[in-house]
Simulated assay, not measured.
Amino acid sequence: MTIEIREVTTKKERRQFITFAWEVYRNDTELKKYWVPPVITDYMKTLDKEVFPLYEHADLAMFTAWKDGKLSGTIAAVENRRHNEVHQDRVGFWGFFECFNDQQVADALFNAAAGWLKKKGLDTMRGPVSPSMNDQCGMLTRGFDSSPVFLMLYNPPYYNDLVLASGHHVGQELLAWYIDQSIIDIKRLRKIAAHVMKREGLSIRIMNMKDFDREIERVRDIYNKAWEKNWGFVPMTDREFDFMAKSLKPIANPHYIYFVEDRDKRTIGFSLSLPDINQALKHVNGNPFSPTGLLKYLWYTRKITMVRTITMGVLPEYRNKGIDSILNTHIADYGGRHGVFASEMSWVLKANEAMSKLAKVIGGRPYKEYVIYERAV
């Protein structure tokens, strides 16, 4: 048996790299039940160095593994120069890992990524990060019995065994919190929110989609200030943030995107939640833009029962003042009025006790766990 590693260089090979995942999941009934196929056109853009703005300060290599002439695994390696400037380290990343349950193939893939990163002068690799910490990251270790929400990952349990056996160790653990909004004590939450708003002289409003560009500037400013000290965080460039915002705009519901303002109408906090469109994407096999795919997508988006709270950000001077209670009240209130009684708060560092405490206060439970692994290169 021979294993050959090939570097992806053409558009056709890139599409083959993406669609290999179908081979992993199609023959496993249990996995197939929960896996949500990625949107092929989105991944094609994300892995296009001429299109995706991350690569203005990063480099990417994609590898496929062939065992006895059969495609058997994929991995991408990323050198993020901006990350290394911010954190003063020499860390590279791997992501888009898909593989049959074959340790030899997995080892060949990780060695290919490690070799490429080492040539870049890096000494550590971390993953899965696909392709940055501002995108999809973390390997699922608990919670395999339900589908991932929008922009979160799913993988077979054996992936963790393959990673650990290849010389990785746990770098960071991440949590996804499930919040059943139907059991939240909404009256109590409203009272707390009203008290905080009166005490601090605050007001809250939804996103103004007609002023989209300026609203995004407000989000970007707070996001970068609020998260700058978080593990692994790298501030997005203007181009990265604008690209992400425009890609999410078609699915955004302004009633799940809130801004908190002070007496002078200065934005001091925000919350970004999105409908869990994975509930619809699960039925379109990676192509929501085909005639049948579009019809199915539109039909199932009417049945979405969950939102994902991707991020909350508060300016440093307003932390620990209960601003989160204001944001959570409005998310729960609007969701309850429209039949959406579930939300996922993700992802949250397991070591972030403050965020975990917040999730518990509103009735959350950690129902999925993820790991970002590390190893020397």
Rank of each mutant, 00 (worst) to 15 (best):
I3L: 06
I5H: 05
R6W: 04
T9W: 04
T10G: 01
T10H: 02
K11H: 03
E13H: 06
I18M: 06
W22A: 14
N27R: 09
L31T: 03
K32G: 01
V36L: 09
P37W: 02
T41F: 12
T41R: 15
D42P: 02
Y43D: 11
P53G: 14
Y55G: 11
E56T: 13
H57G: 13
A61L: 08
D68H: 08
N80L: 13
V86Q: 14
H87T: 13
V91Y: 05
V91P: 00
V91L: 11
E98G: 07
E98N: 15
E98V: 13
C99G: 14
C99S: 15
C99L: 10
A108H: 06
N111H: 14
L117G: 08
K118F: 06
D123A: 12
V129D: 06
P131Q: 09
N134W: 08
G138V: 10
T141G: 02
T141K: 05
F144Y: 13
F144G: 11
S146M: 11
P148V: 12
P148L: 14
V149K: 01
L151R: 09
L151S: 09
L153S: 14
P156C: 08
P157D: 04
N160F: 01
V163N: 02
V163R: 03
L164Q: 12
H169L: 05
G171A: 13
L174K: 04
L175Y: 10
I179Y: 01
D185V: 06
R188N: 11
L189S: 01
R190H: 10
I192A: 04
A193Q: 00
A193T: 02
A194W: 00
A194Y: 01
M209G: 04
K210N: 15
E215W: 03
R218W: 00
N224P: 01
N224M: 13
A226K: 04
E228R: 13
F243M: 12
L248V: 13
I251N: 01
A252H: 04
F259V: 03
D262L: 06
I268N: 00
G269F: 04
P275H: 08
Q279T: 09
F289A: 15
P291L: 15
L294R: 08
K296A: 10
Y300K: 12
R302F: 04
K303F: 07
K303N: 10
I304P: 01
V307T: 15
V307G: 03
P316H: 08
E317H: 09
E317D: 14
R319K: 14
K321C: 03
G322C: 05
G322P: 02
G322Y: 01
L327V: 08
Y334A: 14
G335N: 03
G335P: 01
G336H: 08
G339K: 11
F341A: 12
S343D: 04
K350A: 15
L358R: 02
K368E: 03
E369W: 05
E369I: 03
R375E: 10
